[in-house]
Nucleic acid binder design. Structure first.
Lengths: 232, 232
DNA sequence: GCAAATTAATGATTTATTCAAG
DNA sequence: CTTGAATAAATCATTAATTTGC
C-alpha cells in the first residue's frame, strides 16, 4: 500500500485535491512524525504531515461543507452548488491570488510599496476584494514574502557573480547604498517622517469581509499617508 | 549647542519625555541617518533617530492632546484633565505592564503558554484589561519576546558551561528532545491536533477596547483550544 | 491524454535580530 | 540595561507546475 496514492479526486465537477500528504487515509493517529523541525533533511524523506482541513476531513467528512462556508481564507468556496447528493466541496486552505490581484500587487510593489502600513493594507485589501476573496493578512504576507524573496534572489545573483570572500562583510555593512539597491526604499523625508510620525500600533480591524464599503472603481491610487503599524 | 539637551519636560503635573533623540529641536529634515540596518557598529555611533510621537510633537505642538486621546497603544492617556490652559498631556508611546498583568503573564508562561493563539490572546487581553490598558498585540509581543529571551538566556548559559565546538551541532539537530528542553513545547496529540485542525488564519478582530464584555472574575483558566493564527 | 509522482513556487508561521523607549 | 515593538530571515506546509509512466 503506497503511502501517497491519491492526489486528486474528481468529484462531479469539483476537484478535491489532496496533494502529497496522505490525509484521506488515516483515522489512526500515525506513528508521529517526531521531528518538529526537520531541517536535518538527511534521513527522513519529509514525513507526510497531517494537514489542517484535510485532517478535519478525515475525521468529520460531512462537516466539510459547513467548514468551507465559514472558511475565511479560501479564495473560492462552494462553487456550483447543485442538487446532487454529494456536497460540492472545494478544499482550499490558503489564499491564492487571482491574476488581477496579483497584477495589482506587483504593480504596487513596482511603484515602491514594500511594507504597507495597516491603513494601506486595509485599503489595498478593500480594493482587491473586488477581484476575489482576500484578507488583510494575505496582503501583509504577500509584501513580506515578495520583498524577502527578491532580496534573496538578488543576494544569490550577487553570490554567483562575486567571489566568496565578501559575504560576511556584506551582512555587516549593509549601508544605505546597499539598501537602496536592494529595496529601493525611498528615503525622502516625507515617507520617513510619515512612517515615523504615527506607528501607533493599533492593529487594523481588518475588514470583516461583508462591508465592501466602496463602489469606487479607481485603481488603487498611491497612498499618501503611512500610518499605524501592523501586528494584527 | 549640544545635540541632546532636554530629556524631560515637566508640564504642570505631567512629564513629557524626550529621550535621547533631539526631537523637539529640528524642523529641518536632518541630514538623513542613512543606516537602516546598523549592525556594523564600528563607525557610526547610532545616529539619533526621529521618533514617532515626538516627531509629531515637534511639528504640531497642539495636536498632541488630540493625538493622545486617540492613541490606542498608550497605557494611560490624558490623566488629570484640568481646567488649565496648558493641555495636560502624557506621552507614553509603548505599553508598560502593570505588576498584576506581568504576574499573570508570567504565570501563564510558567504553566506552558508559549505561542498563544489569536483566541487565547483575545481572552488573555480581555482579562488583563481589568488591571490596565492593554491590547492584543502587547500580549502577543510579550510572549514572543519572553520566549525568545529565555531561549537566548539559556543559550548563553550553555555557551558558558560548554566548550565551543558543539554550537553548530546544536543548531542542526534540534530534535524533539532539544525542543522539549528548550521550550517545553507540549507534544501531546491533543495540542498537536488542535493546532493542526484549525489554523484558519483569520486575524482576531482584536477587542476594540470599549467592550469589556466580561464581569467574569475567574483568573485566566488555561485555554483548551488553540485556533486561529495571528497576524493582525 | 490522463493522473500519479515529483518538483518548484509561494502562502503562512516561527525565530532571530534589531531598534528604541523608559 | 531591560524590554516593548518591528522587521528580516528561516522554516514549514500547501498548492501549482512539471515530469513521468502508462
Amino acid at each position: 500500500m503506497s503511502s501517497h496514492f491519491l492526489t486528486r479526486i474528481s468529484f462531479n465537477g469539483c476537484t478535491v485535491k489532496k496533494t502529497n500528504s496522505n490525509c484521506l487515509e488515516p483515522l489512526i493517529p500515525r506513528p508521529v512524525p517526531s521531528t518538529t523541525n526537520n531541517n536535518n533533511s538527511s534521513t527522513t524523506p519529509t514525513p507526510p504531515c497531517l494537514s489542517r482541513i484535510h485532517g478535519i476531513f478525515s475525521r468529520l467528512n460531512l462537516c466539510l461543507l459547513l467548514s468551507n462556508m465559514d472558511m475565511k481564507g479560501s479564495h473560492f468556496v462552494d462553487q456550483n452548488k447543485r442538487e446532487f447528493n454529494t456536497p460540492p466541496v472545494v478544499v482550499s486552505s490558503r489564499w491564492n491570488p487571482t491574476p488581477e490581484q496579483l497584477r495589482t500587487l506587483e504593480e504596487l510593489y513596482r511603484r515602491g510599496t514594500r511594507t504597507p502600513s495597516a491603513e494601506q493594507i486595509q485599503h489595498i485589501t478593500a480594493q482587491l476584494r473586488r477581484y476575489g476573496k482576500i484578507e488583510g493578512k494575505n496582503v501583509f504576507y504577500w509584501f513580506q514574502n515578495h520583498k524577502a524573496r527578491e532580496r534573496q534572489k538578488r543576494r544569490r545573483q550577487l553570490e554567483l557573480s562575486s567571489p566568496d570572500h565578501l559575504h560576511h562583510h556584506h551582512h555587516h555593512h549593509n549601508n544605505v547604498h546597499d539598501i537602496d539597491i536592494f529595496e529601493r526604499k525611498d528615503t525622502t523625508g516625507a515617507n520617513r517622517t510619515a512612517k515615523a510620525g504615527v506607528a501607533e500600533c493599533r492593529p487594523p480591524p481588518v475588514n470583516n469581509g461583508e462591508d465592501d464599503e466602496c463602489g469606487e472603481s479607481q485603481t488603487l491610487e498611491l497612498f499618501p499617508l503611512r500610518s499605524e503599524r501592523k501586528v494584527w
